[in-house]
Simulated assay, not measured.
Amino acid sequence: MDSIPANRRLWNQISSAYQHEHDPRIGATPRLWGMYSIPDAHLHALGDVTGKRVLELGCGAGQWSRALAAEGATVVGLDLSEAQLTAAARAMGAARYPLVQGAAEQLPFAADSFDLVFCDFGGLSWAPPHLAVPQAARVLGRGGRLVFNVASPWFEACYDEAASRVTTTLQRDYFGLNTIAEGDGATSYQLTYGDWVKVLRGAGLIIDDLIEPRPELGTPNGYNETDPPDWAHRWPAELLWVTHKP
């Protein structure tokens, strides 16, 4: 949990610039997943949320939470960064929902509090999965679902730090993926396919689907440069896990 203070500082520092760059894209249309803004209507990961108790892990400026609250879900947005929560409160609009400051690995909620816990990167990219996934499972009711999108390990393994882009050359060991230094002590997290399965099953969750979102040719990546530009059309850039608590 040593990464919590540093990750909080990082997101407080970059929140304004991040939202200025990305909110026009991710806030423009509801339910867009990941780096390529692929609609949930194409991926069918969340389904109908009307009347469901929903927790977003790492809600940022609340683009997802806002949309789901407007659809009739009872939403709670959780984020580590008070700057991100301020952005969410400012953008909330008519669909009001609670905002909570907290860490995905230390959820301040009772067991059986939610029907759906989800994130698009967010909490399961910025908290140790072996701590955060059991916490998500704990706050889910029976039959509740954990749905989350993270970077593919291959995307991380092919990221060239010197060139600041994803390439077709392996840059780091697949089996060496775990923590990724983000500067000034901040840390993001990445697992192999096998380790994700171990963590999810170890938390008592059933894996229903593993969606590998594939953007159409010409779809821009809003966050990273890739070489070639159609990288994610040819290899999986993201993993969208769909699980439930039996």
Rank of each mutant, 00 (worst) to 15 (best):
185 G>H: 10
200 L>Q: 03
107 L>I: 12
155 F>G: 00
194 G>H: 00
125 S>P: 04
166 V>W: 02
164 S>I: 04
175 F>T: 03
171 Q>P: 04
194 G>T: 01
151 A>N: 07
125 S>M: 07
196 W>K: 06
125 S>H: 05
180 I>D: 00
176 G>H: 06
197 V>N: 00
199 V>H: 01
146 L>E: 02
158 C>L: 06
141 G>W: 08
182 E>Y: 09
153 P>Q: 07
162 A>Q: 15
107 L>D: 08
117 V>M: 10
154 W>V: 06
198 K>N: 02
154 W>P: 01
114 F>H: 10
115 D>K: 09
162 A>C: 06
155 F>M: 10
148 F>C: 07
154 W>A: 03
162 A>P: 02
177 L>C: 00
123 G>A: 14
165 R>D: 05
158 C>F: 12
146 L>H: 04
172 R>T: 04
144 G>L: 13
137 A>V: 12
125 S>R: 03
126 W>T: 11
167 T>C: 10
123 G>W: 12
164 S>L: 11
124 L>Y: 09
162 A>R: 14
129 P>H: 02
157 A>Y: 01
121 F>N: 11
156 E>L: 09
171 Q>V: 05
150 V>G: 03
140 L>H: 10
192 T>K: 04
144 G>F: 14
159 Y>C: 04
197 V>S: 01
181 A>D: 15
155 F>W: 13
200 L>T: 03
170 L>P: 06
187 T>L: 13
121 F>H: 15
107 L>K: 08
126 W>N: 14
131 L>A: 12
189 Y>F: 15
132 A>K: 02
189 Y>W: 15
119 C>E: 08
124 L>G: 07
148 F>V: 05
192 T>C: 05
181 A>M: 06
141 G>M: 14
127 A>L: 08
162 A>T: 13
185 G>A: 11
162 A>D: 13
198 K>R: 13
196 W>E: 04
142 R>A: 15
190 Q>D: 01
172 R>K: 10
178 N>V: 00
119 C>F: 11
107 L>H: 09
